[in-house]
Design a protein around this nucleic acid. Structure first.
Length: 201
DNA sequence: TGTCCGATATCCT
DNA sequence: GGATATCGGACAT
């Protein structure tokens, strides 16, 4: 059987390219013997050094964002507002603190478990936001620094052959970062699949 | 050691 | 549509 997991080379590319390429890929978490998965439908790019909205702006390097300074293909996950997790994938090479925030998924496998994790019966409300998808797929800080490309790991990304043509990729300003000032809060570094009902609002 | 605040979701009106 | 929950990280003291 062909190994469909994304390899290191996929992530070691410019962050904007990776952000778009991730649309249509499948995020898979094998959790307690269950497969929890979803197709990525919305992403945001964070270009560390020069991006005022990024944790690594100006080369800021801390215990929390240390993994961003490593090579692409690793997981950067942390807690905001004391209750919501944010899932990111590190991109580019070593010492370029760049990453892609996963904002929304279209649920694929393990939907019943996800509904239970989320305490909701509504499919449309399961994974249409960064904090929601982490809760649905049971992702938390213990996965920080996880290698997505490691053989046999239980958290990875697959290419299942879904092709998203450039025409179906929409872009716009990122969300919830007004503090970054008029320029960085407006750059069009958010990407999503046109007309997909699971994109966050 | 203390204070400030966030890459959101939810509940309430 | 608006308030607010809730905690760990960042940085100042």
């Amino acid at each position: 059987m062909r190994d469909k997991r994304l390899k290191r080379g996929f992530f070691i590319r410019p962050t904007i390219i990776v952000s778009k390429a991730l649309l249509g890929k499948f995020l898979i978490h094998e959790y307690r013997g269950q497969i929890l998965s979803g197709m990525i439908v919305e992403t945001e790019a964070y270009i560390g050094e020069k991006d005022k909205a990024a944790h690594s702006y100006g080369g800021r390097r801390t215990i929390r964002n240390e993994v961003e300074y490593g090579p692409g293909g690793y997981v950067y996950i942390y807690l905001v507002y004391g209750l919501h997790h944010q899932l990111n994938f590190v991109t580019a090479g070593t010492d370029q603190p760049e990453c892609v925030l996963i904002r929304a998924l279209e649920p694929a496998e393990g939907i019943e478990v996800m509904k239970n994790n989320r305490k909701t019966g509504k499919l449309s409300n399961l994974t249409n936001g960064p904090g929601k998808l982490c809760q649905a797929l049971a992702l938390d800080r213990s996965l920080n620094g996880h290698d997505l490309t490691a053989k046999g790991s239980d958290f990875y990304i697959e290419d299942r052959g879904v092709k998203i043509s450039p025409k179906r990729i929409k872009k716009g300003p990122r969300i919830g970062i007004d503090y970054a000032g008029p320029y960085w809060s407006r750059v069009h570094w958010r990407f999503w699949i046109k007309d997909n009902p699971f994109v966050s609002k």
